[in-house]
Design a protein around this nucleic acid. Structure first.
Lengths: 230, 230
DNA sequence: CGAACATTCAAGAGAGTTATTGAATGTTCG
DNA sequence: CGAACATTCAATAACTCTCTTGAATGTTCG
């Protein structure tokens, strides 16, 4: 079978454009860069902060951030001694969300990780946003933000109680007894919320994960508390 | 400044999961693979067909298709002598669309290609789907599908006239005079429709591009004619 | 100005990606 | 069965990506 090539003219326009899109995709094509994007989705951050949160050396984080900036996924702005990076737009969140959807539905590697690490925990019964809102109104749940305090301060769901995962054991008494706990953190696959739910269930508490983290909450057009806003 | 790492436990779960998503992104990270995905968005195709349409050797196309299959973006099915590939789901179209949105808004490389090749043509005044539908009802436009006949046969917008770009000059008389022409092809950046509009305008015809190709039309839940359906 | 700080740059080793080539596998058909 | 066909595999060379290291740049503050 032979199919004749259908253009003789503008081939390079097409390939140049596709190459530009491919470059963006390669920007997403590294676990550490996806991690950095998740951290940036919580709010803008300086290089050293990001390096620490992502467990990278500063030089390495800087290079990854420059790779992200080169393809337009983040923007960096010098602010005094620091260079502060942020996502270049909400469409970047949409892109990462689309990547996650495809992965969860079709990628065996994703399914394998979910099965090995997350399943048997509580993946199935995450609480959707509208359900949470109804139950909060009815006073039936305690909403728990298990991220570190600096990220909580940069924005959180109204009514959330901030107890970082690392402090949860010590501060268990701060959680009102009786009401079910709904925990959230940076995103749909943030391990902090999984760990919190597992721990709380081990303590005999009713606990579930929120289906999405703060970026998803914000992206869904919901209100975010930002006490330390400038 | 020193920020303590916030986990001591499930780090590998998180990185394994991100690595799995990153692998999918790398699957998109090549111009030829994006091209193959656009062709597959028109309908399922065998390896040799795809190789010809994308201008690749068969062995090379096969390798790219296997790369796409490995990360779950396409599925391949042996059908007799041939292996027929197709997109693994509509969410793949959504992912590519999200990539395009980010690129158009934030990537300088994309903007540069658009400026150099596509602008000065007609990029700005593409016709949206609802507008096309209204004008088709009112008999004000001729809808032109400039893709090759085999793709037209696999599905097209109701009421479209199929004249492949390569035949346009010779078959100009088939286009009813008077009515404005709206041309579409494989997707928002398919060069065929750009070229067709440029040519028709050069002939003094009123012509515009449809804002999206057949996959977008289908994805928007609109009717598709498929005369040669099995 | 000079010290301290935050970030970037440069170079290099090791690993991964891509196009090409030719051979190997699996399927159909006479 | 054997020839023809469609696809995949294997090996290779050129190229790109990533992390590490240490030096260089740019900014603030005393």
């Amino acid at each position: 079978m032979f199919v004749k090539a259908e253009w003789s003219f503008n081939l390079s326009a097409k390939l140049d454009l596709l190459a530009a899109f491919a470059e963006i995709a390669r920007g997403l094509g590294n676990a550490h860069r996806l991690d950095l994007l998740e951290h940036l989705a919580q709010g803008e951050k300086a290089v050293e902060t990001l390096a620490a949160k992502a467990g990278l050396t500063v030089a390495n984080a800087s290079q990854h951030l420059q790779a992200l900036r080169r393809v337009g996924l983040v923007v960096g702005e010098r602010r005094g001694k620091q260079v502060v990076y942020r996502l270049s737009g909400d469409d970047v969140l949409d892109l990462v969300a689309a990547l996650r959807t495809v992965g969860e539905r079709h990628a065996d590697s994703v399914k394998a990780v979910v099965r090995d690490y997350f399943h048997g925990r509580d993946s199935l019964d995450a609480v959707a946003f509208p359900v949470l809102e109804q139950r909060l109104r009815d006073g039936l749940v305690t909403l728990l933000d298990v991220r570190p305090p600096d990220e909580f301060a940069d924005g959180h769901v109204p009514g959330a109680l901030n107890i970082p995962l690392s402090d949860l054991k010590a501060r268990l008494n701060e959680i009102p007894p009786g009401a079910e706990v709904v925990a959230y953190c940076r995103g749909p696959w943030c391990v902090l919320a999984f760990e919190a739910v597992a721990f709380l269930r081990g303590q005999g508490r009713g606990a579930r994960r929120l289906d999405g983290g703060l970026p998803e909450w914000r992206r869904a057009g919901r209100q975010v508390v930002r006490p330390s806003a400038i």
